[in-house]
């Protein structure tokens, strides 16, 4: 069966530097795969190749079995993307942002749909008509996730999704991500948060200086052991 997301011997050079070196992985339908790595490991670049913003110098990235480079628009239409710094428009309120971005994606929704999505991410009702410039980072992140929900794409790419969120918001976010995966959404997240990755992911890959140097899978009904991954992460980073 075709994996929704697959990297095949992916290599990427930028400005003469090797950013990714022969990275291979795939993410199955309904699976949460977390790529762990330090700064400059190539995590965000991996996501950007799936979105067609960066062209592989070797290998290929595939979305729903099709090489991204052959049909970027089709790949993007299958993906909802949450960048590291979710910068929705500060001068617009939550509804207006959802309306704008959803329309940009070629979709439409009703006010009730917006409220359902915002309820699901637990954004307080009284905040929804306020401009986002007055939102906390967590509230902005929730709005962005609501957008991803409304887009109903089969794939979700998350770049450091819990960075800057408070612990309660992180727990809420993890629950939501698991719900989405349970509903069949394929999720690839990149993070440097070992604990968070082990909490939520079905599999964790360790990325170091552009190379995939380790992989850990959760046993059925259990979480990935944080200590093991942390030790491996620390050991690899120390090399």
């Amino acid at each position: 069966m075709t994996s929704p997301l697959e990297a095949r011997s992916l290599s990427l050079d930028r400005d003469g530097n090797t950013v990714l070196d022969n990275v291979s992985f795939s993410v199955a339908k309904g699976e949460i795969f977390a790529l762990l790595g330090g700064n400059g490991a190539g995590k965000s670049s991996t996501l950007l190749t799936f979105l067609g913003f960066l062209e592989p110098s070797g290998g290929a990235v595939l979305v729903n079995g099709k090489t991204v480079g052959s049909d970027v628009a089709s790949a993007r239409s299958a993906i909802a993307y949450l960048p590291e710094a979710t910068s929705l428009y500060g001068h617009m309120n939550a509804y207006e942002n959802l309306d704008y971005f959803l329309n940009l994606a070629g979709r439409s929704a009703t006010q009730a749909d917006y409220d359902t999505a915002l309820d699901r991410v637990a954004l307080p009702r009284e905040a929804r008509s306020r401009r986002l410039q007055f939102f906390s980072k967590g509230m902005r992140q929730k709005t962005a996730i609501a957008l991803a929900l409304l887009r109903e794409t089969p794939i979700l790419l998350l770049d450091e999704p819990t960075s800057g969120l408070d612990p309660v918001a992180i727990d809420e976010f993890h629950d939501l991500v698991k719900d989405l995966a349970g509903a069949g959404q394929t999720i690839l997240m990149v993070t440097h948060d070992v604990y968070g990755a082990c909490q939520v992911a079905d599999r964790v890959g360790l990325l170091r200086r552009g190379q995939l140097v380790g992989s850990f899978a959760a046993e059925k009904g259990k979480r990935i052991d944080t200590e093991t991954v942390h030790a491996a992460f620390a050991e690899r980073e120390a090399v």
């Binding site: 979105l51 993007r76 960048p83 590291e84 979710t86 929705l88 428009y89 971005f101 994606a105 070629g106």
Partner: peptide
């Protein structure tokens, strides 16, 4: 500058549409 470019283009599907 607002780090919104990639989100916008990825959501739009193509630069031209945006």
């Amino acid at each position: 500058t607002a780090r919104r470019h990639d989100l916008l283009v990825a959501t739009a599907g193509s630069s031209r549409k945006l």
